[in-house]
Write a protein that binds this DNA or RNA. Structure first.
Lengths: 132, 132
DNA sequence: ATAGGCCTTCCAGTCGCTGGAAGGTCAAGC
DNA sequence: GCTTGACCTTCCAGCGACTGGAAGGCCTAT
């Protein structure tokens, strides 16, 4: 299976797959002509990576998860710890975004959005504090 | 006012201020010895930028907002449009993060997190679908 | 004179790709 | 056998928004 088929099978772009090989996440064998040769094992790794990335795990977290996945003697506690840490990171991001959203929504709400120059959004950015 | 004082006044690291000059967001004058010289005008620009960045506006959005701020003939509609677009972007991010969070929280919840190898998190990443 | 704390520029690295150039390979059609 | 076009290869550069560090200049205090 060539890289294009692996890309279609895993949902990852070919470029990304090459990049993952570059950074050592997987090492597909090569055929005689130098093409990468993806078998079921490689496709499994790629779909694993695609799913982990879709859940927002960093590449290094993916690397760790992949290692645990391939280690049948792993402790599920190790996996859970990574996921838990990531969950907390996501919660932090959501919280930050919600704060931004609240401020911004208020500003947008207060701005007339017409052809006059008066603008609570700019005023707030200039002087600090909320609109009004 | 030297860059260090400007950094303390605006809350931005000196490095970031130099970077902002590099990309043309502000052009502080220089004193005879080549040091950047920050006056009230520059400090205002820097605090404006710091606040806009804190609301998650991209550098290019900041550049546009800054231009509108400095244009007393602006239409508030132009400002509002930028803010509205950014608000939608934030909503998209929050929504994506919430989806991730939901899946991940479920997986974490289902994982025993002990010293045994069985792990619904890895199983889900491997086979797709939810835990269980 | 020297110490230290600023300031300067420039280059490289972060993260996770993504685009593009230059060239090799392969299967189909004529 | 030759061309066409779709694939594959490597390598280098760039994105956004900084951040770190090296090498060197300046300024003030002792």
């Amino acid at each position: 299976m060539n890289i294009g088929d692996a890309a279609r099978a895993s949902g990852l772009p070919s470029k990304t797959i090459r990049y993952y090989e570059d950074i050592g996440l997987l090492v597909p064998p090569r055929t005689a002509n130098g093409y990468r040769d993806f078998g079921p094992r490689e496709i499994n790794i790629l779909t694993f990576l695609a799913r982990a990335r879709a859940l927002g795990f960093t590449i290094e977290e993916c690397r760790a998860l992949l290692a645990l996945w391939q280690d049948t003697d792993r402790a599920s506690a190790d996996v859970r710890r990574i996921a838990q840490t990531h969950l907390e990171e996501i919660d932090r991001k959501i919280s930050d975004l919600r704060d931004m959203r609240a401020t911004l929504a208020n500003l947008v709400h207060c701005c007339a959005g017409d052809d006059r120059p008066d603008c609570p959004i700019l005023e707030s950015l200039a002087r600090g504090g909320a609109a009004g």
